[in-house]
Write a protein that binds this DNA or RNA. Structure first.
Lengths: 230, 230
DNA sequence: GATGATTTGTACGTATGTATA
DNA sequence: ATATACATACGTACAAATCAT
Protein backbone atom coordinates (compact mmCIF):
# COMPACT_ATOMS: atom_id res chain seq x y z
CA UNK A 1 0.00 0.00 0.00
CA UNK A 2 1.53 3.28 -1.03
CA UNK A 3 0.33 5.48 1.82
CA UNK A 4 -3.35 5.60 1.01
CA UNK A 5 -4.50 9.15 1.88
CA UNK A 6 -5.52 10.80 -1.38
CA UNK A 7 -3.02 12.96 -3.19
CA UNK A 8 -0.03 10.76 -2.51
CA UNK A 9 2.75 12.33 -4.58
CA UNK A 10 4.55 9.06 -5.15
CA UNK A 11 1.48 7.18 -6.31
CA UNK A 12 0.40 10.11 -8.44
CA UNK A 13 3.76 10.31 -10.09
CA UNK A 14 3.63 6.62 -10.89
CA UNK A 15 0.08 6.91 -12.08
CA UNK A 16 1.01 9.59 -14.51
CA UNK A 17 3.94 7.74 -15.96
CA UNK A 18 3.14 4.06 -16.07
CA UNK A 19 -0.24 2.65 -16.82
CA UNK A 20 0.81 -0.76 -15.57
CA UNK A 21 1.59 0.77 -12.18
CA UNK A 22 -1.82 2.34 -11.99
CA UNK A 23 -3.44 -0.98 -12.75
CA UNK A 24 -1.23 -2.73 -10.22
CA UNK A 25 -1.99 -0.21 -7.47
CA UNK A 26 -5.69 -0.43 -8.14
CA UNK A 27 -5.69 -4.22 -8.09
CA UNK A 28 -3.53 -4.33 -4.97
CA UNK A 29 -6.02 -2.10 -3.25
CA UNK A 30 -8.99 -4.16 -4.37
CA UNK A 31 -7.43 -7.44 -3.34
CA UNK A 32 -6.21 -6.18 0.02
CA UNK A 33 -9.57 -4.61 0.78
CA UNK A 34 -11.33 -7.84 -0.04
CA UNK A 35 -13.31 -6.15 -2.77
CA UNK A 36 -11.80 -8.75 -5.04
CA UNK A 37 -12.15 -11.99 -3.17
CA UNK A 38 -9.86 -14.99 -3.17
CA UNK A 39 -10.25 -17.34 -6.08
CA UNK A 40 -11.65 -14.72 -8.41
CA UNK A 41 -10.53 -15.20 -11.97
CA UNK A 42 -8.84 -12.16 -13.46
CA UNK A 43 -9.56 -11.92 -17.13
CA UNK A 44 -6.97 -9.83 -18.93
CA UNK A 45 -9.27 -8.38 -21.56
CA UNK A 46 -11.94 -7.59 -19.00
CA UNK A 47 -9.48 -5.72 -16.82
CA UNK A 48 -8.08 -3.93 -19.83
CA UNK A 49 -11.55 -2.69 -20.72
CA UNK A 50 -12.22 -1.65 -17.14
CA UNK A 51 -9.05 0.42 -16.97
CA UNK A 52 -9.39 1.71 -20.49
CA UNK A 53 -6.06 0.16 -21.42
CA UNK A 54 -4.78 -2.64 -23.59
CA UNK A 55 -3.84 -6.07 -22.35
CA UNK A 56 -0.13 -5.31 -22.29
CA UNK A 57 0.03 -3.12 -19.16
CA UNK A 58 -2.58 -5.32 -17.49
CA UNK A 59 -0.43 -8.38 -18.05
CA UNK A 60 2.61 -6.61 -16.67
CA UNK A 61 0.68 -5.63 -13.57
CA UNK A 62 -0.56 -9.17 -13.03
CA UNK A 63 2.95 -10.53 -13.38
CA UNK A 64 4.13 -8.13 -10.71
CA UNK A 65 1.30 -9.01 -8.37
CA UNK A 66 2.27 -12.65 -8.66
CA UNK A 67 5.72 -11.91 -7.28
CA UNK A 68 4.30 -10.49 -4.06
CA UNK A 69 1.92 -13.41 -3.93
CA UNK A 70 -1.37 -11.58 -4.28
CA UNK A 71 -2.33 -13.47 -7.39
CA UNK A 72 -1.44 -16.84 -8.78
CA UNK A 73 -0.25 -17.36 -12.35
CA UNK A 74 -1.34 -20.57 -13.94
CA UNK A 75 0.45 -20.68 -17.30
CA UNK A 76 -2.04 -20.56 -20.14
CA UNK A 77 -4.88 -21.05 -17.72
CA UNK A 78 -5.28 -17.55 -16.42
CA UNK A 79 -4.67 -15.61 -13.26
CA UNK A 80 -6.63 -15.92 -10.04
CA UNK A 81 -6.60 -13.99 -6.78
CA UNK A 82 -4.59 -16.18 -4.43
CA UNK A 83 -6.82 -18.49 -2.47
CA UNK A 84 -5.59 -18.83 1.08
CA UNK A 85 -6.08 -21.85 3.25
CA UNK A 86 -6.79 -21.27 6.96
CA UNK A 87 -3.34 -22.71 7.73
CA UNK A 88 -1.71 -20.28 5.38
CA UNK A 89 -3.55 -17.33 6.91
CA UNK A 90 -2.38 -18.38 10.35
CA UNK A 91 1.16 -18.74 9.03
CA UNK A 92 0.92 -15.24 7.67
CA UNK A 93 -0.37 -13.86 10.95
CA UNK A 94 2.40 -15.54 12.86
CA UNK A 95 5.01 -14.21 10.49
CA UNK A 96 3.55 -10.74 10.71
CA UNK A 97 3.54 -10.96 14.49
CA UNK A 98 7.21 -11.92 14.54
CA UNK A 99 8.13 -9.20 12.06
CA UNK A 100 6.26 -6.58 14.03
CA UNK A 101 7.97 -7.72 17.21
CA UNK A 102 11.35 -7.50 15.53
CA UNK A 103 10.63 -3.98 14.30
CA UNK A 104 9.45 -2.73 17.67
CA UNK A 105 12.50 -4.11 19.36
CA UNK A 106 14.82 -2.18 17.07
CA UNK A 107 12.57 0.87 17.10
CA UNK A 108 12.76 0.97 20.89
CA UNK A 109 16.50 1.40 20.73
CA UNK A 110 16.63 3.79 17.79
CA UNK A 111 13.56 5.95 17.88
CA UNK A 112 14.23 9.67 18.21
CA UNK A 113 12.44 11.64 20.93
CA UNK A 114 10.37 13.30 18.22
CA UNK A 115 9.29 9.96 16.79
CA UNK A 116 8.43 8.69 20.24
CA UNK A 117 6.25 11.67 21.00
CA UNK A 118 4.56 11.43 17.61
CA UNK A 119 3.55 7.84 18.23
CA UNK A 120 2.44 8.59 21.78
CA UNK A 121 0.33 11.51 20.57
CA UNK A 122 -1.23 9.36 17.90
CA UNK A 123 -2.01 6.70 20.45
CA UNK A 124 -3.67 9.11 22.85
CA UNK A 125 -5.66 10.78 20.10
CA UNK A 126 -7.02 7.39 19.10
CA UNK A 127 -8.86 7.06 22.41
CA UNK A 128 -11.80 9.03 21.05
CA UNK A 129 -12.06 6.60 18.11
CA UNK A 130 -12.27 3.76 20.63
CA UNK A 131 -15.06 5.54 22.52
CA UNK A 132 -16.88 6.30 19.29
CA UNK A 133 -16.43 2.66 18.21
CA UNK A 134 -15.48 3.96 14.79
CA UNK A 135 -14.12 0.84 13.13
CA UNK A 136 -13.04 2.47 9.89
CA UNK A 137 -11.23 5.35 11.54
CA UNK A 138 -9.61 3.07 14.10
CA UNK A 139 -8.38 0.78 11.35
CA UNK A 140 -6.75 3.75 9.63
CA UNK A 141 -5.14 4.84 12.89
CA UNK A 142 -3.94 1.31 13.52
CA UNK A 143 -2.16 1.20 10.20
CA UNK A 144 -0.43 4.50 10.92
CA UNK A 145 0.63 3.25 14.32
CA UNK A 146 2.31 0.20 12.90
CA UNK A 147 3.87 2.05 10.00
CA UNK A 148 5.37 4.65 12.29
CA UNK A 149 6.99 1.77 14.17
CA UNK A 150 8.45 0.38 10.98
CA UNK A 151 10.03 3.73 10.15
CA UNK A 152 11.32 4.16 13.67
CA UNK A 153 13.61 1.17 13.13
CA UNK A 154 15.72 3.56 11.02
CA UNK A 155 16.25 0.66 8.68
CA UNK A 156 14.66 1.45 5.36
CA UNK A 157 14.92 -2.06 4.00
CA UNK A 158 13.31 -3.58 7.04
CA UNK A 159 10.51 -1.03 6.95
CA UNK A 160 9.81 -1.93 3.34
CA UNK A 161 9.74 -5.65 4.05
CA UNK A 162 7.48 -5.22 7.06
CA UNK A 163 5.10 -3.11 5.03
CA UNK A 164 5.04 -5.59 2.17
CA UNK A 165 4.35 -8.54 4.45
CA UNK A 166 1.79 -6.67 6.52
CA UNK A 167 -0.08 -5.47 3.47
CA UNK A 168 -0.92 -9.01 2.54
CA UNK A 169 -2.97 -9.34 5.69
CA UNK A 170 -4.68 -5.98 5.38
CA UNK A 171 -7.97 -7.49 4.30
CA UNK A 172 -8.04 -9.68 7.40
CA UNK A 173 -6.72 -7.17 9.88
CA UNK A 174 -9.66 -4.92 9.29
CA UNK A 175 -12.15 -7.66 10.03
CA UNK A 176 -10.89 -8.32 13.54
CA UNK A 177 -12.27 -5.01 14.82
CA UNK A 178 -15.79 -6.24 14.29
CA UNK A 179 -15.25 -8.88 16.96
CA UNK A 180 -16.44 -8.18 20.51
CA UNK A 181 -14.67 -5.26 22.06
CA UNK A 182 -11.53 -5.78 20.06
CA UNK A 183 -10.99 -2.07 19.42
CA UNK A 184 -10.69 -1.33 23.13
CA UNK A 185 -8.41 -4.32 23.64
CA UNK A 186 -6.24 -3.27 20.73
CA UNK A 187 -5.89 0.23 22.15
CA UNK A 188 -4.93 -1.11 25.56
CA UNK A 189 -2.33 -3.43 24.03
CA UNK A 190 -0.81 -0.56 22.09
CA UNK A 191 -0.51 1.24 25.41
CA UNK A 192 1.41 -1.67 26.92
CA UNK A 193 3.79 -1.75 23.99
CA UNK A 194 4.39 1.99 24.26
CA UNK A 195 5.05 1.69 27.98
CA UNK A 196 7.85 -0.79 27.32
CA UNK A 197 9.18 1.45 24.56
CA UNK A 198 9.18 4.39 26.97
CA UNK A 199 11.25 2.35 29.42
CA UNK A 200 13.65 1.46 26.63
CA UNK A 201 13.09 -2.26 27.07
CA UNK A 202 13.08 -3.57 23.53
CA UNK A 203 12.65 -7.21 24.43
CA UNK A 204 9.54 -6.58 26.49
CA UNK A 205 8.15 -4.27 23.82
CA UNK A 206 8.74 -7.01 21.26
CA UNK A 207 7.02 -9.64 23.40
CA UNK A 208 4.04 -7.38 23.94
CA UNK A 209 3.79 -6.55 20.28
CA UNK A 210 3.91 -10.23 19.38
CA UNK A 211 1.13 -10.93 21.85
CA UNK A 212 -0.84 -8.00 20.47
CA UNK A 213 -0.66 -9.40 16.96
CA UNK A 214 -1.56 -12.88 18.07
CA UNK A 215 -4.54 -11.49 19.96
CA UNK A 216 -5.60 -9.81 16.73
CA UNK A 217 -5.34 -13.14 14.94
CA UNK A 218 -7.40 -14.78 17.66
CA UNK A 219 -10.10 -12.13 17.41
CA UNK A 220 -10.20 -12.61 13.67
CA UNK A 221 -10.56 -16.35 14.15
CA UNK A 222 -13.49 -15.87 16.52
CA UNK A 223 -15.13 -13.37 14.18
CA UNK A 224 -14.91 -15.80 11.29
CA UNK A 225 -16.25 -18.62 13.43
CA UNK A 226 -19.14 -16.46 14.64
CA UNK A 227 -19.98 -15.34 11.13
CA UNK A 228 -19.93 -18.92 9.90
CA UNK A 229 -22.26 -20.21 12.63
CA UNK A 230 -25.03 -17.72 11.86
CA UNK B 1 17.78 -19.83 -7.75
CA UNK B 2 16.24 -22.77 -9.48
CA UNK B 3 18.90 -25.48 -9.47
CA UNK B 4 21.34 -24.45 -12.17
CA UNK B 5 22.86 -27.66 -13.66
CA UNK B 6 21.90 -28.18 -17.30
CA UNK B 7 19.07 -30.53 -18.14
CA UNK B 8 17.16 -29.49 -15.04
CA UNK B 9 13.64 -30.92 -15.37
CA UNK B 10 12.10 -27.99 -13.53
CA UNK B 11 13.83 -25.43 -15.72
CA UNK B 12 12.93 -27.43 -18.80
CA UNK B 13 9.31 -27.51 -17.75
CA UNK B 14 9.39 -23.77 -17.32
CA UNK B 15 11.07 -23.44 -20.67
CA UNK B 16 8.16 -25.11 -22.26
CA UNK B 17 5.55 -23.07 -20.47
CA UNK B 18 6.59 -19.46 -20.04
CA UNK B 19 9.34 -17.66 -21.81
CA UNK B 20 9.18 -14.77 -19.36
CA UNK B 21 9.89 -17.19 -16.52
CA UNK B 22 12.98 -18.47 -18.24
CA UNK B 23 14.25 -14.96 -18.77
CA UNK B 24 13.45 -14.01 -15.20
CA UNK B 25 15.22 -17.04 -13.75
CA UNK B 26 18.28 -16.46 -15.88
CA UNK B 27 18.49 -12.79 -14.94
CA UNK B 28 17.92 -13.55 -11.26
CA UNK B 29 20.80 -15.96 -11.36
CA UNK B 30 23.09 -13.52 -13.14
CA UNK B 31 22.30 -10.66 -10.81
CA UNK B 32 22.57 -12.71 -7.62
CA UNK B 33 25.84 -14.23 -8.77
CA UNK B 34 27.25 -10.82 -9.53
CA UNK B 35 27.76 -11.75 -13.14
CA UNK B 36 25.56 -8.78 -13.90
CA UNK B 37 26.87 -6.02 -11.69
CA UNK B 38 24.96 -3.21 -10.04
CA UNK B 39 24.17 -0.25 -12.22
CA UNK B 40 24.28 -2.22 -15.45
CA UNK B 41 21.74 -1.00 -17.95
CA UNK B 42 19.39 -3.70 -19.19
CA UNK B 43 18.38 -3.05 -22.74
CA UNK B 44 15.16 -4.80 -23.67
CA UNK B 45 16.02 -5.44 -27.30
CA UNK B 46 19.48 -6.69 -26.42
CA UNK B 47 18.09 -9.14 -23.87
CA UNK B 48 15.40 -10.23 -26.30
CA UNK B 49 18.06 -11.05 -28.89
CA UNK B 50 20.15 -12.88 -26.33
CA UNK B 51 17.27 -15.09 -25.26
CA UNK B 52 15.90 -15.51 -28.75
CA UNK B 53 12.61 -13.96 -27.74
CA UNK B 54 10.68 -10.80 -28.41
CA UNK B 55 10.66 -7.81 -26.12
CA UNK B 56 7.32 -8.69 -24.57
CA UNK B 57 8.38 -11.57 -22.31
CA UNK B 58 11.59 -9.72 -21.50
CA UNK B 59 9.58 -6.72 -20.33
CA UNK B 60 7.38 -8.92 -18.19
CA UNK B 61 10.42 -10.51 -16.59
CA UNK B 62 11.98 -7.13 -15.85
CA UNK B 63 8.75 -5.92 -14.26
CA UNK B 64 8.78 -8.95 -11.97
CA UNK B 65 12.39 -8.45 -11.00
CA UNK B 66 11.58 -4.89 -10.01
CA UNK B 67 9.07 -6.12 -7.44
CA UNK B 68 11.68 -8.17 -5.60
CA UNK B 69 14.01 -5.21 -5.88
CA UNK B 70 16.70 -6.74 -8.05
CA UNK B 71 16.31 -4.14 -10.75
CA UNK B 72 15.09 -0.59 -10.80
CA UNK B 73 12.48 0.66 -13.24
CA UNK B 74 12.95 4.22 -14.37
CA UNK B 75 9.86 5.00 -16.44
CA UNK B 76 10.86 5.66 -20.03
CA UNK B 77 14.49 5.76 -19.05
CA UNK B 78 15.21 2.08 -18.93
CA UNK B 79 15.93 -0.60 -16.38
CA UNK B 80 19.13 -0.94 -14.39
CA UNK B 81 20.42 -3.55 -11.97
CA UNK B 82 19.73 -2.04 -8.56
CA UNK B 83 22.69 -0.08 -7.30
CA UNK B 84 23.00 -0.51 -3.57
CA UNK B 85 24.48 2.05 -1.24
CA UNK B 86 26.66 0.76 1.62
CA UNK B 87 23.92 1.88 4.05
CA UNK B 88 21.35 -0.10 2.17
CA UNK B 89 23.52 -3.22 2.18
CA UNK B 90 23.98 -2.91 5.92
CA UNK B 91 20.23 -2.45 6.33
CA UNK B 92 19.71 -5.61 4.34
CA UNK B 93 22.20 -7.54 6.43
CA UNK B 94 20.61 -6.37 9.63
CA UNK B 95 17.17 -7.33 8.39
CA UNK B 96 18.42 -10.72 7.30
CA UNK B 97 20.06 -11.22 10.69
CA UNK B 98 16.81 -10.45 12.48
CA UNK B 99 14.80 -12.67 10.18
CA UNK B 100 17.21 -15.55 10.62
CA UNK B 101 17.08 -15.11 14.37
CA UNK B 102 13.31 -15.14 14.29
CA UNK B 103 13.28 -18.33 12.23
CA UNK B 104 15.73 -20.14 14.46
CA UNK B 105 13.77 -19.23 17.54
CA UNK B 106 10.61 -20.80 16.15
CA UNK B 107 12.52 -23.69 14.64
CA UNK B 108 13.98 -24.52 18.04
CA UNK B 109 10.50 -25.08 19.43
CA UNK B 110 9.02 -26.86 16.43
CA UNK B 111 11.73 -28.87 14.77
CA UNK B 112 11.12 -32.61 14.66
CA UNK B 113 13.81 -34.98 15.92
CA UNK B 114 14.44 -36.01 12.34
CA UNK B 115 14.94 -32.41 11.24
CA UNK B 116 17.24 -31.78 14.15
CA UNK B 117 19.42 -34.75 13.32
CA UNK B 118 19.49 -33.81 9.64
CA UNK B 119 20.83 -30.35 10.43
CA UNK B 120 23.31 -31.71 12.93
CA UNK B 121 24.57 -34.25 10.43
CA UNK B 122 24.93 -31.60 7.79
CA UNK B 123 26.84 -29.42 10.21
CA UNK B 124 29.26 -32.17 11.17
CA UNK B 125 29.81 -33.20 7.57
CA UNK B 126 30.75 -29.63 6.73
CA UNK B 127 33.85 -29.86 8.93
CA UNK B 128 35.83 -31.40 6.10
CA UNK B 129 34.92 -28.46 3.85
CA UNK B 130 36.30 -26.14 6.51
CA UNK B 131 39.54 -28.08 6.65
CA UNK B 132 39.78 -28.16 2.87
CA UNK B 133 39.07 -24.41 2.80
CA UNK B 134 36.68 -25.09 -0.06
CA UNK B 135 34.88 -21.76 -0.36
CA UNK B 136 32.45 -22.81 -3.06
CA UNK B 137 31.39 -26.03 -1.37
CA UNK B 138 31.12 -24.34 2.01
CA UNK B 139 28.94 -21.63 0.54
CA UNK B 140 26.61 -24.29 -0.83
CA UNK B 141 26.50 -26.03 2.53
CA UNK B 142 25.85 -22.75 4.28
CA UNK B 143 22.82 -22.09 2.13
CA UNK B 144 21.43 -25.54 2.89
CA UNK B 145 21.98 -24.99 6.59
CA UNK B 146 19.98 -21.80 6.63
CA UNK B 147 17.27 -23.14 4.40
CA UNK B 148 16.77 -26.17 6.58
CA UNK B 149 16.26 -23.79 9.48
CA UNK B 150 13.60 -21.89 7.53
CA UNK B 151 11.71 -25.08 6.86
CA UNK B 152 12.03 -26.22 10.45
CA UNK B 153 9.87 -23.28 11.51
CA UNK B 154 6.97 -25.31 10.09
CA UNK B 155 5.61 -22.05 8.81
CA UNK B 156 5.59 -22.13 5.03
CA UNK B 157 4.92 -18.44 4.61
CA UNK B 158 7.75 -17.45 6.91
CA UNK B 159 10.12 -19.81 5.14
CA UNK B 160 9.25 -18.22 1.82
CA UNK B 161 9.77 -14.71 3.12
CA UNK B 162 13.08 -15.60 4.72
CA UNK B 163 14.27 -17.18 1.50
CA UNK B 164 13.20 -14.21 -0.58
CA UNK B 165 14.93 -11.72 1.69
CA UNK B 166 18.04 -13.83 2.06
CA UNK B 167 18.37 -14.37 -1.67
CA UNK B 168 18.87 -10.67 -2.19
CA UNK B 169 22.10 -10.85 -0.24
CA UNK B 170 23.33 -14.02 -1.91
CA UNK B 171 25.92 -12.21 -3.97
CA UNK B 172 27.40 -10.65 -0.84
CA UNK B 173 27.16 -13.63 1.44
CA UNK B 174 29.47 -15.59 -0.74
CA UNK B 175 32.15 -12.93 -0.63
CA UNK B 176 32.56 -13.00 3.15
CA UNK B 177 34.19 -16.44 3.06
CA UNK B 178 37.21 -14.96 1.32
CA UNK B 179 37.98 -12.92 4.40
CA UNK B 180 40.56 -14.22 6.89
CA UNK B 181 39.47 -17.46 8.47
CA UNK B 182 35.81 -16.70 8.14
CA UNK B 183 34.89 -20.23 7.11
CA UNK B 184 36.19 -21.68 10.37
CA UNK B 185 34.49 -18.94 12.36
CA UNK B 186 31.23 -19.51 10.54
CA UNK B 187 31.37 -23.22 11.26
CA UNK B 188 32.03 -22.60 14.95
CA UNK B 189 29.12 -20.15 15.15
CA UNK B 190 26.79 -22.66 13.55
CA UNK B 191 27.87 -25.07 16.28
CA UNK B 192 26.92 -22.58 18.97
CA UNK B 193 23.50 -22.05 17.43
CA UNK B 194 22.92 -25.80 17.22
CA UNK B 195 23.94 -26.24 20.84
CA UNK B 196 21.24 -23.81 21.94
CA UNK B 197 18.75 -25.53 19.64
CA UNK B 198 19.65 -28.88 21.23
CA UNK B 199 18.93 -27.44 24.67
CA UNK B 200 15.61 -26.14 23.41
CA UNK B 201 16.47 -22.55 24.25
CA UNK B 202 15.00 -20.59 21.37
CA UNK B 203 15.93 -17.17 22.67
CA UNK B 204 19.60 -18.05 23.04
CA UNK B 205 19.60 -19.74 19.65
CA UNK B 206 18.09 -16.59 18.15
CA UNK B 207 20.67 -14.34 19.81
CA UNK B 208 23.50 -16.53 18.57
CA UNK B 209 22.12 -16.64 15.07
CA UNK B 210 21.79 -12.86 15.03
CA UNK B 211 25.40 -12.54 16.16
CA UNK B 212 26.44 -15.08 13.54
CA UNK B 213 24.84 -13.04 10.78
CA UNK B 214 26.28 -9.78 12.03
CA UNK B 215 29.72 -11.39 12.15
CA UNK B 216 29.22 -12.37 8.53
CA UNK B 217 28.36 -8.78 7.69
CA UNK B 218 31.47 -7.59 9.52
CA UNK B 219 33.66 -10.04 7.64
CA UNK B 220 32.19 -8.85 4.39
CA UNK B 221 32.87 -5.25 5.37
CA UNK B 222 36.51 -6.06 6.12
CA UNK B 223 36.88 -8.00 2.89
CA UNK B 224 35.56 -5.06 0.88
CA UNK B 225 37.81 -2.64 2.76
CA UNK B 226 40.85 -4.87 2.15
CA UNK B 227 40.06 -5.26 -1.52
CA UNK B 228 39.63 -1.50 -1.89
CA UNK B 229 42.96 -0.68 -0.22
CA UNK B 230 45.01 -2.86 -2.55
C1' DG C 1 -13.67 -37.62 -27.97
C1' DA C 2 -13.72 -34.02 -31.46
C1' DT C 3 -14.69 -29.26 -32.66
C1' DG C 4 -15.43 -24.45 -31.93
C1' DA C 5 -15.02 -20.51 -28.84
C1' DT C 6 -12.32 -18.13 -25.75
C1' DT C 7 -8.19 -16.68 -23.70
C1' DT C 8 -3.52 -16.69 -23.09
C1' DG C 9 1.40 -16.10 -24.88
C1' DT C 10 4.35 -13.92 -28.09
C1' DA C 11 5.58 -10.85 -31.79
C1' DC C 12 5.61 -6.51 -33.87
C1' DG C 13 4.46 -1.65 -34.99
C1' DT C 14 3.93 3.04 -33.61
C1' DA C 15 3.99 7.08 -30.75
C1' DT C 16 5.79 9.52 -26.93
C1' DG C 17 9.10 10.89 -23.92
C1' DT C 18 14.23 11.12 -22.75
C1' DA C 19 18.94 11.79 -23.82
C1' DT C 20 22.36 13.71 -26.91
C1' DA C 21 24.56 16.40 -30.48
C1' DA D 1 18.15 25.86 -27.38
C1' DT D 2 16.62 22.96 -30.97
C1' DA D 3 16.66 19.09 -33.38
C1' DT D 4 17.82 14.31 -33.93
C1' DA D 5 18.23 9.73 -32.39
C1' DC D 6 16.82 6.26 -29.64
C1' DA D 7 14.61 3.35 -26.16
C1' DT D 8 10.53 2.69 -23.89
C1' DA D 9 5.30 2.25 -23.30
C1' DC D 10 1.39 0.88 -25.18
C1' DG D 11 -1.55 -1.01 -28.58
C1' DT D 12 -2.68 -4.46 -31.96
C1' DA D 13 -2.27 -8.84 -34.44
C1' DC D 14 -1.57 -13.57 -34.67
C1' DA D 15 -0.56 -18.27 -32.89
C1' DA D 16 -1.31 -21.76 -29.68
C1' DA D 17 -3.41 -23.84 -25.92
C1' DT D 18 -7.31 -24.50 -22.87
C1' DC D 19 -12.21 -25.03 -22.01
C1' DA D 20 -16.87 -25.77 -23.21
C1' DT D 21 -20.14 -27.93 -25.93
Amino acid sequence: MTGRPGGDPVADALDRTLLSDRVRNALTEEIASGHLSAGTNLDEQQLADRFGASRTPVREALRQLSVSGLVELRPRRGVVVTRLTPERIMDMFETTAEVEAMCVRLATYRMTPLERSRINDLHHDSRRLVEARDVTAYDAFNRSFHQLMYRATHNGFMAEQALAIGSRLEAFRRMQFRQGDRIAASHAEHGLVLAAVAEGDGDVAARRMRAHMLNAAGALGRYIADAASE
